[in-house]
Structures are given as C-alpha cells and as structure tokens.
Amino acid sequence: MTGFFLRWLLAFALLAASFNPTGYSYYGWAREAFDSELPMVVLAGLLLLVGYIIYLRATLRSIGAMGMVLVLAIAAALVWVLHDRGLLVLREGAARVWLGLGILSLVLGIGLSWSHVRRRISGQSDMDDVGD
C-alpha cells in the first residue's frame, strides 16, 4: 500500500511542479523567464516531459485509455456526491485546481500501480511485449 501512495505522491508532485495556483510552478516560472533563461526553460520542460512520458506510457499500458476514463468518471462521481452532501465546497478556483491535480495524479498513480495490484489479486505477472 505504501508503494501506491509513493507513486501517487510522485504523480502529484509532477503535476504540481508543472502547474498549480500558487504561481510556484514550471508554468509560472517559464512565463516570466522565457526571454531571459530560455535554455533553462527548455531543459526543465524536457525533464518534465520525460516524467509525463514515463507515467502516461505506464498508465496506458496497464489500464488503457478506457481505464483512465473510468477512473476519472469514478472520481468525478465521488466529487459530485461529496459536493451534493455538503461535504465538499468548491467556491474558490484554487481549490478546484488542487482537486483537479489530485484527481489526475490519482489516475496516474493507479495506472503506475495497477500491475502490482493485478499481480497480488491474480498471482500473475504482466510482461512487456518483446517487440517494444
């Protein structure tokens, strides 16, 4: 279980490092430093891109696009229920952004962890395609 939370936390860190409402993110920094520090902006962007490729490729291989949509739909329905019951109030834009980052990181965390979950449930290991 701690492995899943670590993968989820790393996915959240990747997303929050890219964009968040505080302004302390790649997006905020790149907008200000684009003209003066273009090489650093490009390098940091490429490093973030590598992180996204790792997470997205693993997620697509493990749960697929339909699985990603299903996890997003379940999370959206849960947010809807919590909001409908008055347990979740989303008046501020920043709260909605953080919630969105949390949900997207949940999708990526589940995608990266799904092979481990499947192996524990079924006792079978997933193998990558030999041709890749």
Rank of each mutant, 00 (worst) to 15 (best):
G100M: 10
Y27A: 10
G28R: 07
A11N: 08
A33H: 08
L90R: 10
S62D: 09
A11T: 06
V79A: 15
M127Y: 11
A95F: 11
D128G: 07
D84Q: 10
I103D: 05
G23F: 02
G111S: 04
G23S: 05
W114F: 13
A73I: 12
L108D: 03
G51N: 00
G109C: 01
D129F: 13
L106E: 05
E92K: 14
L112K: 08
V71R: 04
F19L: 14
A76F: 14
A30I: 03
D128C: 01
I103A: 15
A30H: 05
G100V: 09
T22N: 12
S25F: 06
L108F: 08
L99Y: 08
E37V: 01
S36Y: 04
V89H: 13
D84A: 11
F34Y: 13
R118A: 12
A65S: 15
E37N: 11
L14A: 13
I74V: 15
S18C: 12
G23M: 03
R31Y: 07
S62A: 11
P39E: 04
Y27H: 09
Y26Q: 06
R85P: 00
Y24M: 13
R96H: 12
V71W: 09
Q124P: 03
L10Q: 04
L15H: 02
V42S: 00
I110Y: 07
M68C: 12
V69G: 08
L46R: 01
L46I: 02
E92T: 13
V89I: 13
L48H: 03
L47P: 01
D126L: 02
R31H: 11
A16S: 15
F4H: 04
R119C: 03
S36V: 04
L82H: 02
F12N: 04
D35Q: 09
P21G: 09
W29R: 05
A77L: 15
